[in-house]
């Protein structure tokens, strides 16, 4: 009789739908139809959040005021991915960073393209490159490129 412990392989497939919500729906439609990057402003705290959310975490106000934060921003930090993993969205090497859009007080994680990884730097001014065929998600921005 074999003495090895017995292992039963398995796989879960988990389909889901994500309901985007009131404000983000408007923001994604503006991105898809007009290439406009929208955030939401809290008038009490005088802060603009991108991605937009319906409640300000600092003062708990209900937020309504969608504002355009623009397609230009600054690289706050970045990293270059050299290793390959099934979850990665593209072949390495690729660069992704946190980008503070000019009209926002928060950072957006996204890719940085059209530049050698070695030439990317913190503080670099970048600009969104949009897809031709947009579907209403954040990947309607292909990546950010140097201004």
């Amino acid at each position: 009789m074999r003495q090895e412990p017995f292992v039963v392989p398995g796989k879960l497939v988990v389909p889901y739908r994500y309901f985007v919500g009131r404000l983000a729906s408007k923001a994604l439609i503006a991105l898809r139809d007009d290439k406009k990057v929208m955030g939401v402003r809290c008038p009490t705290c005088n802060l603009t959040y991108m991605p937009p959310r319906s409640t300000c975490g600092r003062c708990f106000s209900k937020l309504e005021e969608l504002v355009e934060v623009g397609d230009k921003g600054t690289v706050l930090t970045y990293t270059v991915v050299y290793h390959k993993e099934p979850v990665h969205p593209m072949e390495p090497p690729f660069v992704y960073g946190l980008i503070k859009l000019d009209g926002a007080d928060t950072a957006l994680p996204h890719f940085i393209g059209e530049v050698e990884p070695e030439k990317v730097s913190i503080g670099m001014k970048v600009q969104a490159v949009f897809k031709d065929k947009r579907e209403g998600n954040i990947l309607d921005i292909k990546y950010f490129k140097p201004q």
Partner: peptide
Amino acid sequence: SVSDPLWRRWIATGAMGAFARVGRDYIR
């Protein structure tokens, strides 16, 4: 499965990406 399904899931790099950024920022 724990990342924000709308704004984050597409850029999944797990904990490694987060700490690469921490290191990058700390060095600078």
